[in-house]
Design a protein around this nucleic acid. Structure first.
Length: 270
DNA sequence: CGCACCCCCTGCCGGC
DNA sequence: TGCCGGCAGGGGGTGC
């Protein structure tokens, strides 16, 4: 589910409600996620005050008052929602964190591809990996071209490689490449400077517009208050195989790149 | 060494 | 109607 715009939407939405709150209760109903939730997770979180909430790549990063960081990755189907009072325990609610204002943050994940752990602040970079922030001001065409130099993998796989860029997933890789007019199977190392310029511009434009829309709701995604995103209505290629291109009328084509469904307009993208 | 492939898990949808 | 295969926003390990 959640790529950079969805994670950003959730983090921005929840931050005003969570920052300054102190954790009163932690319940772990299911610790078997992509990696098991640590045995001492609840003990480490209980009593801590949240001092910040941000996004790094596709990961939520909550700062704690003991100089540690609480990391939450939502995988494909994870949800992080703030709820009032004591609603019913729903299927796939794996972790429930109660705060001093009576509200609770619920981590729900049907497929359990998510990740939840607490690390010292100093271990943050090592835990999250070296991927660059796509929206960082310094990440322009030159930085992208430098990272792609010599690499033969398809440019779409390059954009989705989290060790290179952190935050772009399947939906937005497709949409960015349509916006930039570049075919997804082009070798990353063979793109021209002007193509990297367009990709750099498109990356920022697509991700920022998607954030403004509260992300894309395909099926599972909801924000921190269970609201839908609306960017799916602006998708130009994703999941539109066989439908007419909004720009030229050509039928959108589909293929697999690195095992992931890929969509493009054969006329608009070269 | 870079990359394609398969797997993790559950749910849903379409076809037979 | 019911079963089965395929597919889904992510990521990591393996092996070529």
């Amino acid at each position: 589910m959640p790529e950079l715009p969805e994670v950003e939407t959730i983090a921005r939405g929840l931050a005003p409600s969570l920052v300054g709150r102190t954790v009163r209760a932690v319940r772990v109903y299911e610790r078997r996620l992509r990696e098991p939730i640590a045995r001492d997770f609840a003990r480490a979180l209980r009593g801590r005050t949240i001092t910040g909430l941000a996004r790094a790549g596709k990961t939520h990063v909550a700062s704690l008052d003991d100089d540690r960081r609480w990391l939450v990755h939502l995988g494909m189907t994870g949800r992080l929602t703030l709820q009032d009072g004591h609603g019913p325990h729903r299927p796939h609610d794996h972790v429930v964190v109660g705060f001093d204002d009576g509200r609770r943050l619920v981590y729900n994940d049907v497929r359990r591809f998510g990740r939840m752990l607490i690390v010292p602040a100093g271990a943050l970079t090592a835990t999250l990996g070296p991927g660059l922030e796509p929206l960082a001001p310094e990440l322009g065409a030159a930085a992208l071209a430098a990272r792609a130099r010599g690499r033969r993998l398809p440019v779409k796989a390059f954009l989705m490689d989290q060790r290179c860029l952190a935050g772009i997933g399947n939906i937005y890789a497709n949409e960015i490449l349509f916006h930039a007019g570049v075919r997804p199977r082009r070798h990353a190392g063979r793109l021209r400077a002007r193509e990297w310029s367009r990709i750099a511009t498109s990356m920022r434009a697509v991700l920022e517009e998607a954030i403004d829309c509260g992300g894309s709701t395909i099926s599972d995604y909801r924000d921190g208050f269970e609201r839908f995103g609306s960017y799916q209505a602006r998708h130009r290629v994703y999941a539109r195989a066989g439908e007419p291109c909004h720009a030229c009328g050509e039928r959108i084509r589909t293929l697999a790149v690195g095992g992931r469904s890929t969509f493009y307009c054969p006329r608009c993208q070269r």
